[in-house]
Simulated scan of single mutants.
Amino acid sequence: MAIHKYQAFVKVAEMGSITKAAEAMGYTQSAVSRMVADLEDEWNLNLLRRSRGGLALSSDGLMLLPYIKDLCSHYEALQEQANSLKGLETGFIRIGSCSSFSTQCLPSILKNFEQRYPRIVFQLQNMEYSEAEEALCAGEIDCGFISAPYSPELDVTVLLRDKMLAVLPPNHPLADAPYYPLKRFSEERIIKLTDEANNEVSKVFAQLNSMLDTPVTAYCDVNDDYSIMAMVESGLGVAVLSELVTGRMPFDIRLKELDPPQYRDVAIAVKKGRRPSPATEKFIQIVLEYFHLQ
């Protein structure tokens, strides 16, 4: 089977550009164009729409894309199973992870994984937890790190309970206090992560608002963790971030546990209904060992 032309079409669809798809796959632009054109000729369909605004899938291309993705995914699983039967520790894994987990946990996990299985290649895609869940359900990644609530389409193993913390400037009145009362936010200027960037922070404030007669509102919404910590350091307000996010941070800020405590559960997940590839199973095993779950 000439699987490469199907893989090329999927990559073009994902990146919206033949040039970018060619760079990602290590092919020339003309080679990728030829592969997509071969598919169009084979089926007598136009899969792409080309205009001054760029490249997009045609209606036929949109309809066929899920089936072609599924074909590529099954082909990769077939190759890995065949390699496994031959005793070869080869394979390819697509991992979805948010930047905080990638920074705090994944380097040690991947180092251990590489030492055991040096011939397995991985692709790490940084994305928010909700984006990782969507990518898993769509079959765009093989495993991902997500937070609750979890989709019923996924098999989930909880790895850790990540504390949500109050982030305070160094001269804050509660900078030396043992904890930060949740209701105290009603007296503060709040710098808040946008809902799209982190829905766990929104849950904290939703619980706070359920305790108050007048809901609190944010002084400003920001979609970047480091920008928030820099603003807090400058005394512009206070914030809520997770313990994972605030690890290894270069800012002069104070971190306080909330009262009552607030958490988010972080899990590793795969899509239900299909056994993960041997390489993905090996990776999950390393992850569980890292968190002492196996």
Rank of each mutant, 00 (worst) to 15 (best):
G61H: 06
P118G: 03
P118R: 05
Q115L: 11
R50A: 00
G96P: 08
S102G: 05
E188D: 08
P173E: 11
K5V: 10
E42T: 12
L64K: 03
D142Q: 04
L124I: 09
V216R: 05
F101N: 00
F283N: 00
I253H: 06
E243Q: 10
I268Y: 02
L48R: 03
V10M: 01
E243S: 09
I284E: 00
N171Q: 07
L160Q: 08
A37P: 03
V238Q: 01
V216L: 05
C143L: 15
M25A: 08
N46A: 12
R274Q: 12
Q115A: 12
F283W: 03
T90C: 06
E153P: 07
D155A: 15
S100H: 10
K192H: 12
E243D: 09
F9I: 01
N83R: 12
K271G: 09
A206P: 02
F9M: 01
V36G: 04
V287Q: 04
S100W: 03
E133P: 05
I284R: 00
E243L: 07
S108V: 12
Y180V: 10
L62E: 15
A177S: 14
Y290V: 11
I141G: 03
L71W: 03
Y150N: 06
S33C: 06
F205I: 04
D176H: 14
A267F: 01
A31H: 15
K282Q: 14
L57Q: 04
V158I: 13
Q285K: 11
T28P: 11
L193M: 13
S210G: 14
S97P: 09
Y219W: 13
R116K: 15
N44A: 14
Y150S: 03
E89C: 08
G54F: 02
V222L: 14
T246K: 02
H74W: 09
L88C: 04
Y219P: 00
A148R: 11
F122H: 13
L165F: 11
Q79D: 00
T217F: 13
N171A: 06
N198F: 09
I284L: 14
L88D: 09
V204N: 04
